[in-house]
Design a protein around this nucleic acid. Structure first.
Length: 1002
RNA sequence: GCUGAAGUGGUGGAAUUGGUAGACACGUUGGACUUAAAAUCCAAUGUCCAUUAGGACGUACGGGUUCAAGUCCCGUCUUCAGUACCA
């Protein structure tokens, strides 16, 4: 019986599916464990070997936890809204739903063949109306909530309304827009309904706001920062302008502090927490108000160094700052406007990338220093960003390098307010060693004291207060796309209204084209049936809009992160019970949150921040019990491709004969000479030619010989009156990695047939050709993509799973090289032979030997530790060692070989299941308990001591472990090799660490 | 610039607490089996010197602590990832 992995794997995959082996129970006495993968976007390209890496790791963990007696929830689904399907729809007219469905089928087939223990009965798809009904519902809840800073949580907007009615907003401490003005109960009650709605919108957790976006008129769409290159769109190179648009936003900034604090409670890597901290960007300081001389205006700034307020020698506003046009003097007007136009052309990214160029313009206006009342010139400069803080800074050149550079460049004074510090070369920004000088009441104080005092004095003047600023900006939630969740929103007199839960989902309408309208409206603007009737509570034709009972619906759709911000809760509920709830209270309470989440680090600040925000919100409003979605998180590293390179010279011919000469018959050119060809040469030769290190005579002669039929003979000589002249161009070609075998040898025939231009390629050296190798990102264009389908067919899913783990540490980026898979495949074959010989199962009831037991228990210990530490690569080595040892020991004992299968089953479940049943078990191996480690089998009586001299190991000596320190020293010193090493010298010192090492110094 | 991670044989990597550096594989070389190939099995494989015995050098580089350093400390360089001129 040999190891027919294809049959075995198909058989058990079917068994697991038929028997619902991995179905999670919502009623169980076992402790729960929730293992989740970041769900994939089903792209048209299907999976390559890099995608399953994280899934294999989480699957091993899930299977391990089942063996350990846990009720494991290990679901999978699809993040199925997204751009590629929409792009494809724009190009082909095919509905994105169809594309998505096709892609999901491919994904499912590919995932199934790898043998994952997913509970597919709980699958979710974000593009499914039954799912996005609840995404819409959560959006409505955000709309119906505000953030109360006193209780530090989200509360129903109805509470806010009753406060407004009773006492106005003066005592309300809530997260809201900056421009909210104070009003009384009387004011409120006097507001029109529209005015009230506008006011409430400034408090809601999701709100409409004017946002600056990158608008590309030619594409009719908004572009993200990284879709713009050099001021034009990446696709098509069309001009892009900054444009204000009304869009939905999420008031995530209200949660900044809690998102920061929450990081302390979860088990994520430090680097990931650090990037979230940076993203949230908390800084503590003060806001300071400067009066503008001669204007009824003030400039608010935020500073982290209020202690340096006496060092202010100018102010800088962002060019976009509202005040700029108001305060600029007539003299400076032209210059200022020119500067503003120039900066508007530069994208935010360009401005940030270009750090060295210092630019700015004086507005002609002055502000008044709050304490000295001195006039301070007001400049504009593009190093101040409109989007951060107030878009204005108080510039303290002696304490901030950017202010310093700016001041130097424009000859603005740099007053020194630090005691004993030289600022002639650069600014002094070390706040820990600061002693303030030349600063009136702050003189002699350190940073801490001076900051406190400065804030106090500012408060006395009413021109400032202590303030904490966050970089985190509210998140834009509108997309001008088709393939996303529609908003459950219609407009009455331009004011947004929510549609009640019982009428959800609002299903995406049909459109004929997936492009924006000619007027620049989003694609939903093309839908004919896209209006809301408040009488029938249904979506009706646009022609029925009358603005009394039928109203227009929102045309934007939600962004990609909407559906992925809560999907982990949906899995908790069994599909049958999902109709009326996003998940039942009972299910939510049982599963709580995700115990282990595995996915790529590219989601560090997007998905992982937004889902934390939504979960905190849902927690506040009592929809879920937990405050954080993912207890433990692991980022798997990227699998890189090992590209294969073919090096060659592209040889072409130039013919200096006239057409006449050619036809005369005197000069004959062989047919094959008319066609350029690729001459494939070794990398070494290529490098030499490329760097002009060698004469290529050798190659030229070879080519001339190859075309003996040409008259006159082909030559390279460019000076002679010879007619057939060769030219060559060195070329490096990405060959498809499937043309290359384990020894890097190219299948030259396949390569030739790959492309027409290589059909007549020739090998310079008539032997096998070794390709060059380099590690790059796995991508179609580099022909280094390896498809798991081929691997499964050729080596089996178990080999694929083991090899992906064997490659290296889970979190590390590492190159894929299919050649190495023979190692783990060979291991599986060896393992098989340990259980089965030519005719039958050879496992017996024989008593295990001491060695057998030692091997088994060593393996149990190591594998268990490895899984707990997510060190899957080392477990695979451990399995290899165990199987090598047991083979050598000729072990056939069931008492050893049966538990060994359970250890291996999380990694290679198919072969384990097959052998498990061959041993006479009739239940799935996934129900077997994890073997128990027993220390007693590892107890040794002897230790092979390394004996070192001055720290260098010279020989080993086997000694009993219970030997005393003194006896060890005596035995070692008496040993002949020791005497030989010392050559009569007297050792200065002998270090004996019992059970570890002996070191002789001297 | 800043933040984070990482630099170990020809390659992927191991060494979890400072204690025999290179486990386990790949590749390479040699051998067995075979008409042959594949498959399988056996042996060698950090570099250098040495016939052997053995020795020297070796974990990016330069220092340091220690009986002992891949591991700890200081400095430098390189690579990768993320990013914000953040006041």
């Amino acid at each position: 019986m040999s190891y027919h992995f294809n049959e075995i794997e198909a058989k058990w995959q079917k068994y697991w599916a038929d028997n619902h082996t991995f179905k999670a129970e919502n009623n169980s006495d076992k402790p729960k464990y929730y293992v989740l993968d970041m769900f994939p976007y089903p792209s048209g390209a299907g999976l390559h070997v890099g995608h399953p890496l994280g899934y294999i790791a989480s699957d091993i963990y899930a299977r391990y936890k089942r063996h350990k007696g846990f009720n494991v929830l290990h679901p999978q689904g699809y993040d199925s809204f997204g751009l590629p399907a929409e792009q494809y729809a724009i190009q082909t007219g095919q509905h994105p739903a169809i594309t998505t469905e096709t892609n999901i089928k491919t994904y499912r087939r590919q995932l199934d063949q790898i043998g994952f223990s997913f509970d597919w009965s709980r699958e979710v798809r974000t593009s499914n109306p039954e799912y996005y009904k609840w995404t819409q519902w959560i959006f409505i809840q955000l709309f119906e909530s505000y953030y109360c800073k006193d209780s530090n949580m989200a509360r129903p907007i109805a509470e806010l309304i009753s406060v407004f009615e009773a006492e106005g907003n003066t005592r309300i401490n809530a997260a809201c827009d900056d421009d909210v003005t104070a009003f009384t109960a009387e004011d409120w009650n006097g507001f029109s309904s529209e005015e009230q709605q506008d006011m409430l919108l400034k408090y809601r957790l999701t709100y409409l706001a004017e946002t600056e976006v990158n608008w590309c008129p030619a594409l009719g769409t908004v572009l993200a920062n990284d879709e713009i290159v050099n001021g034009v769109s990446e696709r098509g190179g069309h001009p892009v302008i900054r444009k204000k648009m009304t869009q939905w936003s999420m008031r995530i900034s209200a949660y900044a502090e809690r998102l920061l604090q929450g990081l302390e409670t979860i088990d994520w890597t430090d680097s990931l927490k650090e990037s979230q901290r940076n993203w949230i960007g908390k800084s503590v300081g003060a806001s300071v108000t400067f009066n503008v001389n001669g204007h009824d205006a003030v400039i608010d700034v935020f500073t982290t160094r209020p202690d340096t307020i006496y060092g202010v020698s100018f102010m800088t506003l962002a060019p976009e700052h509202d005040l700029v046009s108001k305060i600029t003097t007539a003299d400076q007007k032209v210059e200022v406007e020119t500067y503003i136009v120039a900066t508007a052309k530069r994208s935010e990214r360009d401005r940030m990338a270009d750090v060295k160029t210092i630019s700015g313009v004086f507005t002609g206006a002055y502000a008044e220093h709050p304490f000295t009342k001195e006039p301070i010139p007001i400049w504009i400069g593009d190093y101040v960003l409109a989007g951060y803080g107030t878009g204005a800074v108080m510039s303290v050149p002696c304490g901030d390098q950017r202010d310093y550079d700016f001041a130097k460049h424009f000859n603005i004074p740099i007053p020194n307010i630090f005691e004993g510090v030289d600022i002639s070369e650069e600014a002094y920004s070390d706040k820990d060693n600061t002693v303030i000088a030349n600063s009136d009441f702050l003189n002699g104080m350190n940073y801490k004291k001076a900051t406190k005092r400065a804030i106090y004095e500012l408060e006395q003047l009413g021109q400032g207060e202590g303030k904490t600023n966050y970089r985190l900006r509210d998140a834009v939630f509108s997309r001008q796309r088709y393939w996303g969740e529609p908003f459950p929103v219609y407009y009455v007199n331009g004011k947004p209204q929510m549609i009640a839960l019982e009428h959800l989902p609002i299903v995406l309408p049909e459109v004929e084209k997936y492009l924006p309208t000619e007027e620049g409206e989003p694609p939903l603007g093309r839908a004919d049936v896209w209006a809301w009737c408040t009488e029938s509570n249904a979506v009706v034709g646009n022609d029925k809009v009358n603005d009394t009972t039928v109203f227009p619906l929102e045309l934007n759709t939600m962004p990609g992160w909407a559906g992925s911000s809560w999907y982990f809760f949906r899995y908790m509920e069994e599909a049958a019970n999902r109709a009326d709830v996003f998940a039942t209270e009972k299910a939510l309470k049982y599963w709580e949150n995700v115990d282990l989440y595995i996915g790529g680090s590219e989601h560090a600040t997007g998905h992982l921040l937004y889902s934390r925000f939504w979960v905190k919100f849902m927690h506040d409003r009592g929809f879920v019990g937990v405050d954080e979605p993912f207890k433990k998180l692991i980022n798997q590293g990227m699998i890189l491709g090992t590209s294969a390179f073919v090096y060659g010279l592209w040889v072409s011919f130039s013919n200096h004969n006239s057409e006449e000469d050619l036809n005369s018959g005197d000069n004959k050119i062989a047919d094959d000479v008319n066609r350029p060809f690729l001459l494939v040469i070794s990398k070494d030769k290529f490098d030499e030619i490329d760097t002009d290190q060698i004469d290529i005579d050798e190659i030229e002669d070879w080519i001339v010989d190859k075309f003996p039929n040409s008259t006159p003979p082909c030559m390279f000589d460019k000076n002679a009156s010879i007619k057939n002249i060769f030219n060559y161009t060195p070329m490096t070609i990405h060959a498809d990695v499937s043309f290359v075998n384990a020894s890097d040898e190219l299948d030259f025939e396949t390569f030739k047939n790959w492309r027409e231009e290589y059909n007549n390629a020739m090998l310079f050296e008539n032997s096998t050709y070794k390709v060059g190798r380099d590690v790059e990102k796995m991508s179609k264009s580099k022909y280094n993509v390896v498809n798991p389908d081929n691997i499964c067919e050729q080596y089996g899913a178990d080999s694929l799973r083991l090899y992906e783990m064997f490659l290296g540490p889970l979190e590390q980026a590492k190159p894929w090289n299919t050649a190495g898979i023979t190692g783990v495949h060979g291991f599986l074959k060896k393992l098989w032979k340990l259980y089965v010989d030519d005719n039958s199962v050879k496992v017996s009831d024989a008593e295990p030997s001491k060695d057998n037991l030692k091997t088994l228990h060593k393996t149990i210990k190591k594998v268990e530790e490895d899984i707990e530490n997510f060190s899957f690569n080392t477990s695979v080595s451990t399995f290899m060692i165990a199987s090598n040892e047991l083979t050598q020991q000729k072990c056939t004992s069931k008492a050893i070989l049966e538990p060994l299968l359970v250890l291996i089953s999380p990694y290679a479940p198919h072969i384990a299941e097959e052998l498990w049943h061959k041993l006479g078990n009739d239940q799935s191996i996934s129900t077997a308990p994890f073997p128990k480690f027993e220390e007693k089998h590892l107890v040794e009586s002897n230790k092979n001591y390394p004996i070192s001299f001055n720290g260098k190991m010279r020989f080993t000596l086997e000694l009993p472990l219970d030997m005393s320190k003194d006896d060890i020293e005596k035995t070692v010193m008496a040993h002949e090799k020791t005497i030989a090493q010392l050559q009569g010298r007297e050792p200065k010192k002998v270090i004996v660490v019992p059970g570890k090492i002996v070191n002789i110094v001297g």
